[in-house]
Design a binder for these strands. Structure first.
Length: 423
RNA sequence: GGAGGAAUGGCAGAGUGGUCGAAUGCGGCAGUCUUGAAAACUGUUGAGGGUCACACCUCCGGGGGUUCGAAUCCCUCUUCCUCCGCCA
């Protein structure tokens, strides 16, 4: 959520910036500023009314104390009108403030100046590419075929137990997945992130805090009986650990990593691109979250990008890094880098990580602040990234490491797996 | 699930109807002292709205009510603690 003050002072600049998202923000920003002005004028009027009745109350109190009950009762009669007026003004104020809030929730984050223009993922800007794309033999298979051949992932079983998009990992497949989780967590804790195991369900306030609500209500599983949401990413519970906090300067940066299953309804997805592990309703992910001083957040973003690069380098997977264009940028992000692994057998790139700076957009909703060098409280910057999303990494390993005699295990994972090949 | 108790500023913790936005301690900040640091001492220090700046308004878990006036009384919700029951 943008700060009102920012909108008041930079309306034109925001409109220009949001054009990168291919939206014309003029109408909504004008509506917001109108509501803001209306809210303030009601507030001023209400303040005056309250000031007057406060004053009268004090006088009445003093009159009672000095035994002048009769005069006090005369003043009492005067307060009735003020009470009605302030009650009505209070209701108006609430209605206006609520309408204003609703509008503010509709405005996405301002894209960073480096965000390229564009409307779809085809307009994303490739900024880095590394790793050799292996030349596979003629019989190379996509991962869902490999999964069946070696009996390590069973999609049909998941359909029976739950439904499509809930695979069952078996044997060495399950072990490889567990190995990847441990390996990622180890890499992240080595880099100074504190490991946490957060709840897998969150309340409504948390959903609003990180921006999943109200914008992406339909993407989350909602447990209606208890009004809780299954998390679509560990970003939600982990960032919300500090909702409402006033952190001290010396605690920054705050760095967390956590492994969680993630649940997404993925309403509207279909077709070949959702085959196998490409798009699931439940998947595992290891996430990193940072809370930063605004002066350091972009440096921190670069650090996170380098960190993920380093992991992919160790796994010896061919990958590229994209700077998301305005049209593809998430609602809450100011700047996002996507990582994609090349899936040789499918001949396409698979997104395996997304690293973003949200600047104050989430912090403003979270009321996550710190005391700065001058003792003034200001909003912190929040960032997060996947390090990494499991299924597609698994798919990338299966497809790129396949041989006619089995799937080799990347060297760094062998100690975690306890075997060198799936055959 | 049953019975009680509690929720106050960054933290701890007073405050039970009228200068209480709130004592005190810790922490933070500034200063004195010191070669420097620590200790000690002195001062200062909640958040939000509003204003050019004041004034002024709001906030003592959330919401509602009583009253001229509520941190303080009533209702309700949430959370936490203690005891009992049940259970991984």
């Amino acid at each position: 959520m943008l700060q009102l003050q920012t909108i008041r002072e930079n309306k034109e600049r925001i409109i220009t910036a949001l054009k990168k998202r291919n939206i014309d923000a003029e109408p909504i920003l004008s509506a917001i500023l109108d509501l803001d002005e209306k809210r303030r004028s009601i507030q001023t009027e209400l303040d005056g009314t309250l000031a007057e009745s406060n004053k009268l109350s004090k006088e009445i109190g003093m009159l009672f104390k000095s035994g002048k009950a009769k005069e006090a009762n005369t003043l009492k009669a005067q307060t009735a009108g003020l009470k009605d007026a302030s009650k009505q003004l209070g209701e108006e104020l609430n209605a206006t403030a609520e309408a204003l809030q609703e509008q503010l929730y509709q405005v996405p984050n301002i894209p960073h100046e480096s965000v390229p223009t564009g409307s779809t993922d085809e307009d994303n800007e490739e900024i880095f590419r590394e790793g050799e794309i292996p030349s596979l033999s003629d019989g190379a298979l996509p991962h869902w075929e490999l999964a069946k051949k070696y009996d390590i992932i069973d999609f049909e079983l998941g359909v029976k137990v739950t439904g499509a998009g809930f695979p069952v990992y078996k044997g060495k497949g399950a072990r490889l997945q567990r190995a990847l989780i441990s390996y990622f967590l180890d890499k992240n804790t080595e880099a100074g992130y504190t490991e946490v195991q957060p709840p897998l369900m969150v309340n409504e306030a948390s959903g609003y805090g990180t921006g999943q609500l109200p914008d992406k209500e339909g993407q989350m599983y909602h447990v209606q009986a208890d009004d809780l949401y299954l998390i679509p990413t560990a970003e939600v519970p982990i960032t919300n650990l500090h909702r409402g906090d006033m952190v001290s300067l010396k605690d920054l940066p705050i760095k967390y990593t956590g492994y969680t299953p993630c649940f997404r309804r993925e309403a509207g997805s279909y077709g070949a691109h959702v085959r196998g592990l490409n798009r699931l309703h439940q998947f595992d992910k290891v996430e990193v979250v940072r809370i930063e001083h605004p002066d350091n957040s972009y440096q921190a973003l670069d650090t996170m990008v380098e960190h993920v690069k380093n992991i992919l380098r160790e796994l010896k997977l061919p990958y590229r890094v994209l700077r998301l264009c305005g049209g593809d940028l998430g609602f809450t992000a100011a700047l996002t880098f996507d990582f994609e692994v090349f899936s040789t057998a499918q001949d396409r790139w698979l997104e395996i990580s997304s690293v973003s700076n949200f600047e104050t957009f989430q912090a403003n909703r979270l009321k996550l602040r710190f005391k700065d060098e001058n003792g003034k409280s200001q909003l912190a910057h929040t960032l997060n990234g996947s390090a990494l999303a499991l299924p597609r990494v698994l798919a990338g390993i299966m497809e790129n490491y396949q041989t006619p005699n089995g799937i080799r295990i990347p060297e760094v994972l062998v100690p975690y797996c306890g075997f060198k090949v799936i055959e």
